[in-house]
């Protein structure tokens, strides 16, 4: 009889273990293993100088990203989900929130231009990264990707995959607002 309290306690051990494992598994449900955190957050944008798309003015280089908050959108005409997020960048351009620059990744010039003519051109500057080498310097591994650059030309946020309304409302716009106030972007 005197052993009863200890037995009750030992019987709870499996329950506790199950709860701990369950907790980890539950947290795992909301993890996105395809999103690899960028090591470039907080760092200055890489040194690069990309030509414009043939026939389009204004290429993109490191110095262009200093002086004001901007977005850099990695896109390609062969990228299907780029089409999904494109209307959102058109809307951003119409609203004039921040300048949006394009990094055209591993794309043929004419194909990229035709794509922009068809779906609209929201970009201020577009760098033509035909070989994808600058993309590697930016740590790009899947298109589309979108970077938020602060006024000092440092990478504040990176969004992997298409930017949807919710990402804009809950992530990018608050981050831009935080940068404007001189704070740190939480994203």
């Amino acid at each position: 009889m005197e052993e009863a309290p200890r037995r009750l306690w030992t019987r709870l051990v499996p329950l506790a273990v199950a709860l701990i494992i369950g907790g980890f598994l539950f947290a795992g449900l909301s993890l996105r293993p395809k999103d690899i955190p960028s090591v470039l957050i907080g760092k200055a944008v890489p040194d690069f100088d990309l030509p414009a798309l043939p026939g389009r003015p204004k290429g993109l280089q490191t110095a262009d990203l200093k002086g004001q908050i901007s977005l850099v959108n990695v896109f390609a005409s062969w990228c299907v989900s780029c089409r999904a997020e494109h209307p959102l960048f058109m809307k951003l351009k119409a609203q004039g929130v921040v300048p949006v620059h394009g990094l055209n990744y591993k794309d043929e010039g004419p194909a990229a231009l035709a794509w922009l003519a068809r779906y609209g051109d929201p970009y201020d500057r577009v760098g033509h990264d035909l070989k994808g080498r600058v993309g590697i310097d930016w740590g790009v591994y899947g298109v589309p990707e979108t970077f938020l650059i602060n006024a000092e030309g440092r990478i504040a946020c990176k969004h992997i995959g298409p930017v949807m309304d919710r990402d804009l409302e809950e992530k990018l716009l608050p981050a831009i607002e935080a940068l404007r106030r001189g704070g740190v972007a939480q994203c």
């Binding site: 690899i36 955190p37 960028s38 470039l40 590697i136 310097d137 740590g139 591994y141």
Partner: peptide
Amino acid sequence: IVDRYGDW
């Protein structure tokens, strides 16, 4: 490579 893509 690690400088660009991280320890991952």
